[in-house]
Nucleic acid binder design. Structure first.
Lengths: 247, 247
DNA sequence: TATAAACCTGCATAAATAAGCAAAATAAAC
DNA sequence: GTTTATTTTGCTTATTTATGCAGGTTTATA
């Protein structure tokens, strides 16, 4: 069998099953695994497949969702970096949704080994790109507006876990009222998330500081860290320093 | 034998078998391999064949990967349309992952009101685009390779629900063994999905028919509908007709 | 942390190729 | 019909390519 024929066969198998194992191909094509590896290497090199340990994956299958345009990306990246510094090896982390969280997921180093629970399918998919992470999705009803899982199912699932660190976005935050949000369901889920976490982190771009929404999630005292895109020495966060640690 | 005659013969062989080996031609034409090589070289030069190490291939065999991809997508769309015809107003539906399922999610009419459970975050996000659908994600550990939620958590969550219709992809399917897959975890989840559904549907492109994978999911009898991209009158699905309804 | 599988590197071998050359076949000219 | 010119072919040699195997290393997973 000619090399090109093997390549064609491999491509077909991948289109069919989304993945192939070198060992299977070696048997099917009746060539050594070395040869299969070389074939996969060549196909990967020319961008036809995605080579992984033990075989190869369909490329189109793996990155089907478009990259999302993020508003104020620089600020959010700043926040994400600070947030990541709080995560240490082996931690159990819980995250919400939102673009800041998505940016954080992207910036997590490939070398981090940790367990992530999340209520956001998008964040989950992004986290799944990191080889060493275990990603667990908290089930529930997917909210069309906020694209995170909510509802009683999500809340009850959250009540069954215990994590080291919880990352949350905030729609409203001020010193007096603490964290607030405009949607009752979101508030319930955020409360549940804080309840199951040893420490809670609020990530919030500076523009949102000192704003209030209709429903209260919790006071600033329940929050362990406040992360913004501005320096912790910036006068805009002075007032928060006495209630929580500001990064 | 004249050179032109040899060329004609070679072209004929390639049209017949999609490939030729220099060594074979040398024997068949009773000329040295060098001559064959020169012939192939000329034919390649004038664009009639594709020369490769050891022989030559049909030009059309020079797999237009993109065409294959598009062709496959067309098939999947065909399947998706048939699948959607099974869903009626107000139904509770459960879906797996995979590109066919994703295509189906996209093609669901905006006017359909129904409840969808799914183990695939990608499918969930796609379904969430439809205003009238309720989308519920079955939680669990997100598999990096198949991008669906798996593990004991997913299985136990599935055991708590009851749905009207369940849509599954298949990695392997044949008449004798039924549905099979290559990953143990995937098999567990698929079994759980079938258990909680009143009726089960397998969606499978025709190329996958009559293939077997290492692990068995269930027999054909447990399946209520088999949907493929080919007509239900096609001889390739005859054998399946006696075990399940083929669309 | 131990273990097996998968990996990479270099090497040996065999097959396929390219280049040069001379003999044979074919075509052209006389 | 012979001679000459051109093309085609097969052979030799050197080079390249494809493949499998041995070894040491990395990776996955229990």
């Amino acid at each position: 069998m000619l090399k090109k024929e093997r390549h064609a066969y491999i491509i077909k198998q991948i289109n069919l099953h989304n993945k192939v194992l070198s060992s299977d191909l070696s048997l099917q094509l009746k060539v050594s695994e070395d040869t299969v590896r070389r074939d996969l290497h060549e196909l990967a090199e020319s961008g036809k497949v995605l080579k992984v340990h033990g075989g190869a994956l369909s490329k189109s299958f793996h990155f089907p969702y478009d990259h999302i345009e993020i508003y104020a990306q620089e600020s959010k990246r700043e926040i994400a970096k600070k947030a990541i510094s709080l995560i240490s090896e082996g931690m159990i982390v819980l995250t919400g949704g939102g673009t800041t969280m998505l940016e954080m997921a992207r910036l997590i180093p490939d070398t981090l080994e940790a367990t992530f629970f999340t209520i956001s399918p998008l964040v989950a998919l992004e986290l799944a790109e990191k080889k060493l992470l275990t990603v667990i999705i908290i089930g529930g009803e997917l909210s069309k507006s906020s694209q995170v899982n909510m509802g009683s199912k999500a809340v009850s699932e959250l009540s069954e876990i215990r994590v080291d660190l919880c990352f949350l976005g905030a729609n409203g935050i001020n010193v007096k009222e603490g964290i607030s949000d405009s949607d009752w369901e979101v508030v319930q889920v955020k409360k549940a998330m804080i309840r199951c976490s040893a420490k809670s982190v609020i990530m919030c771009i500076s523009e949102k500081l000192n704003s209030v929404q209709k429903m209260k999630v919790c006071g600033l005292n329940s929050i362990d860290y406040l992360i913004t895109d501005i320096k912790s020495t910036d006068p805009r966060v002075y007032a928060y320093q006495s209630h929580t640690k500001v990064l």
